[in-house]
Amino acid sequence: MALSSWKELPIGTIITEPGNAREFKTGDWRSQRPIWDSEKCIHCLFCFIYCPDSSIKVNEEGKMTGIDLDYCKGCGICAEECPKEAIHMEIEKR
């Protein structure tokens, strides 16, 4: 990606695109991958409230729909905190 010249950048180091960190995928940091078992999931959303990387996808009805591997760093908190063992961690293979 060609970086902007000083003449093109907004002044004052202001970032004008809110939430554009989404463009930066941290998923490749992962050495362990969470595997979600939708059968066991009771949609308690504990994984959602404890996920540091906003990687638990929740729909309008408040149901968990999966894990966003673009950002998940594989910390394993979700698997650790899941009361139903609906998430487990596996070694990441690429």
Binding site: L3, L9, G12, T13, I14, I15, T16, P18
Partner: peptide
């Protein structure tokens, strides 16, 4: 807007 971000070697 975000005011006062970390600005490293690239910018």
């Amino acid at each position: 807007i975000t005011i006062g971000p970390l600005d490293l070697q690239d910018y």
